[in-house]
Computed example of a mutant assay.
Amino acid sequence: MRAIELFAGAGGLGMGVSLAGFKPEMVVEWDRWCCDTLRENRKLAGSIISSWPTPIEGDVRDVDFRRLEGKIDLVTGGPPCQPFSIGGRHRAHDDSRDMWPEAVRAVREIRPRAFIFENVKGLTRETFSTYLGYILLQLQYPSMDRDGDEDWQDHRDRLQRHHTSGGRIEYRVVHQLVNAANFGVAQKRERVVFVGFAEGIVADWCFPRETHSLDALLYSQFKTDGYWDHHRVAKKNRVINERFKARGESLKEKPAEMPWRTVRDALEGLPEPRLDGKSGGFLNHRLQPGARSYVGHTGSPLDEPAKTLKAGVHGVPGGENMLRRADGSVRYFTIRESARLQAFPDNYVLHGAWSEAMRQLGNAVPVTLGEVVAKSVREHLLSSGA
């Protein structure tokens, strides 16, 4: 099946979509460092993206999609999220960085059978509820573009009137806030995901069921010791999270889900990084010095899923880009460790210095999450027969 990847970044979502069985016909990304990463990995034998086309490096607003109308099964992407991020100033529809209008334009011009878009959790905040509703209306009726100087509120009102008067829905859209940890990613990363199917495709799809859970992890840590035995951690070296102790001890039956994957799980097999970069032959696995812990800046515990990786580096307020060892000491995650927390393969090269590579990873979608959603969408498209 044919796909288009917009706002590709370092390739996390796109890799997941490719693993699900889609072949990208176009990849668009404006950031030169991300494009360097994509170009470099296209050259590598065995790379997930070796069959991708050369990325279009430039502003998506300059791309004409009309030649692909009716020829594409899936459009995917993560419109830049700064207008809705928890960090920084929030201007939403008044922010020139808001690329949702371009995502909608791509759907309008391409008319794909389905689309998958994702964005930060901040988009679901009450502050942005009106604009979230506006995004959903645009995705349902992409052909109803803004007229001339029409402002976004007037456009929203026109879409609402069309919707409530029984207008023909062009795409049936559902959205859901999902936590990547619940799908086997070793990171507590919440993203809001939008999935839409074109009119004519049987619309009986729903988001995949969660496969992993906190309770299953606690059961293996508190009830069976299976987690500790697997990692050969002696009792004296086990750090018990007091926040979860009562919950873990109260569990009576083994949960049906698989355990949340932890930082220790994700980093299994990686040697301790060194300043000279000689770290067992692993790519991008050099120690970055300077990490320190203080109140509110404590890093990610070794035996839980990581905190959400952030695009910032030294200035990340919660220490999300640091590892906190069992003895309480901290250090920065290496690029390779961060890539594993985002489910990137070990042969994937991140272009640029540590700070630049961490920015790319902090903005990425975990590969596993993209694959789970895209695989479900692909199966639905195949079964619909449309």
Results as ranks from 00 to 15, higher is better:
residue 29 E to I: 05
residue 48 I to C: 09
residue 78 G to L: 04
residue 63 V to D: 05
residue 71 K to S: 15
residue 80 P to Q: 10
residue 102 E to S: 10
residue 36 D to W: 03
residue 37 T to K: 03
residue 108 R to S: 11
residue 83 P to R: 08
residue 23 K to V: 13
residue 67 R to S: 13
residue 93 H to V: 08
residue 47 S to I: 02
residue 91 R to S: 09
residue 17 V to A: 12
residue 87 G to N: 11
residue 90 H to S: 13
residue 77 G to Q: 10
residue 84 F to N: 02
residue 76 T to W: 09
residue 100 W to K: 04
residue 94 D to K: 10
residue 64 D to T: 10
residue 63 V to I: 15
residue 25 E to H: 05
residue 23 K to I: 07
residue 34 C to T: 08
residue 75 V to M: 07
residue 63 V to L: 11
residue 81 C to D: 10
residue 36 D to E: 15
residue 23 K to E: 14
residue 34 C to P: 01
residue 62 D to L: 15
residue 52 W to R: 08
residue 28 V to Y: 06
residue 29 E to P: 07
residue 32 R to W: 06
residue 73 D to G: 06
residue 30 W to P: 00
residue 41 N to A: 10
residue 106 A to M: 09
residue 32 R to S: 13
residue 92 A to T: 14
residue 105 R to F: 08
residue 17 V to I: 15
residue 31 D to Q: 01
residue 91 R to E: 13
residue 72 I to Q: 06
residue 55 P to N: 11
residue 64 D to E: 13
residue 85 S to N: 14
residue 107 V to E: 11
residue 108 R to K: 15
residue 38 L to M: 03
residue 98 D to P: 00
residue 87 G to V: 14
residue 20 A to T: 08
residue 66 R to G: 00
residue 42 R to Q: 13
residue 37 T to M: 01
residue 103 A to I: 05
residue 32 R to M: 04
residue 50 S to C: 12
residue 29 E to W: 10
residue 94 D to S: 06
residue 90 H to M: 12
residue 90 H to K: 15
residue 47 S to P: 00
residue 79 P to V: 11
residue 20 A to S: 13
residue 95 D to K: 05
residue 29 E to A: 07
residue 86 I to Y: 05
residue 57 E to S: 02
residue 80 P to H: 13
residue 32 R to G: 02
residue 104 V to T: 04
residue 67 R to W: 01
residue 26 M to N: 03
residue 19 L to N: 11
residue 95 D to L: 03
residue 90 H to D: 09
residue 70 G to F: 13
residue 99 M to Q: 07
residue 65 F to P: 06
residue 76 T to H: 07
residue 80 P to I: 10
residue 35 C to V: 15
residue 77 G to F: 07
residue 99 M to F: 07
residue 30 W to G: 01
residue 97 R to L: 12
residue 25 E to K: 11
residue 41 N to L: 08
residue 68 L to I: 00
residue 92 A to W: 14
residue 76 T to N: 09
residue 62 D to E: 15
residue 65 F to K: 05
residue 57 E to N: 14
residue 21 G to K: 03
residue 101 P to H: 00
residue 82 Q to F: 04
residue 71 K to Y: 07
residue 54 T to N: 13
residue 31 D to Y: 01
residue 88 G to F: 14
residue 27 V to C: 01
residue 82 Q to W: 00
residue 28 V to I: 15
residue 34 C to V: 06
residue 50 S to M: 08
residue 91 R to M: 08
residue 31 D to G: 02
residue 87 G to K: 01
residue 21 G to V: 09
residue 58 G to L: 11
residue 75 V to K: 09
residue 51 S to L: 12
residue 33 W to E: 10
residue 32 R to F: 04
residue 95 D to F: 12
residue 56 I to Y: 15
residue 89 R to H: 15
residue 24 P to E: 03
residue 78 G to Q: 04
residue 72 I to R: 06
residue 108 R to I: 01
residue 97 R to H: 10
residue 75 V to D: 07
residue 23 K to Y: 06
residue 50 S to I: 04
residue 94 D to C: 01
